[in-house]
Nucleic acid binder design. Structure first.
Length: 214
DNA sequence: GTTGAGCGTT
């Protein structure tokens, strides 16, 4: 019943795949079940989720028993407002079973048990195309934008950064032993760095006594 | 806490 995608797709011999788009990210299969179930017998509902976060991608797949019900749902639930968003119901075109789907009708051939052809498998070679599933960049949103940022490829840069960190550190310790350890503005120590100090901070200083007690 | 064109099994 409400356990969709738990034990995999049940009896997909004859079913119609419907694609529901424009659904809210919070919408779940259980939320669409009562809605689509009213249009007919829903065989199964699957909502693709992200492997990283696990959140819904914003669309779901609904399988009906008959095309009549599927078509009805497309005409009835299509444009329906769900969770505050207008969903779009349409027949699934692509998918793992799309090759065997005709207008939404899954004409999957059932392998006959015991009747295994010993001659030669119709598969010349194994399907190593699994890697081809590079999972197209569907997340063209904030997530992608953030990752699109220029990443530091220069490893030397990182190393140099580390080395540079050591120099001032040594100077600071040395200076501390030689000079007065206390009462030393951090900004002054910074000036000791081999690199030219940036006097850009010498604008104007406000009174330190902002809240002086009376 | 956010986002929004499309096509699916963790």
């Amino acid at each position: 019943m409400a356990h969709f995608g738990r034990s995999g797709p049940p009896a997909i011999r004859d079913s119609f795949s419907l694609l529901v788009l424009n659904v809210s990210f919070r919408t779940t299969a259980n939320d669409l079940f009562p809605l689509f179930d009213r249009c007919g017998d829903v065989v199964d509902i699957h909502i693709p989720r992200d492997r990283r976060t696990g959140d819904s991608r914003g669309f779901a797949f609904v399988r009906y028993k008959y095309e009549d019900e599927a078509q009805r749902a497309v005409d009835k639930l299509d444009g329906r407002r769900v969770d505050g968003r207008d969903i779009m119901v349409q027949f699934a075109k692509y998918g793992p079973n799309a090759e065997r789907i005709q207008k939404g009708r899954i004409v999957e051939e059932i392998p006959k048990p015991g009747g295994r052809p010993r001659s030669h498998s119709p598969r010349p070679r194994y399907r190593d195309d699994y890697r081809d599933r590079d999972y197209r960049r569907r997340s063209r949103s904030r997530s992608a934008d953030r990752y699109e940022r220029d990443r530091p490829r220069d490893k030397d840069f990182r190393r140099r950064s580390l080395s540079r960190s050591v120099s001032p550190d040594y100077d600071r310790r040395h200076s501390r032993r030689s000079r007065s350890p206390a009462r030393r503005s951090p900004s002054r120590s910074r000036s000791n760095s081999p690199r030219a100090a940036t006097p850009s901070k010498q604008g104007h200083h406000r009174s330190p006594r902002s809240q002086s007690p009376t």
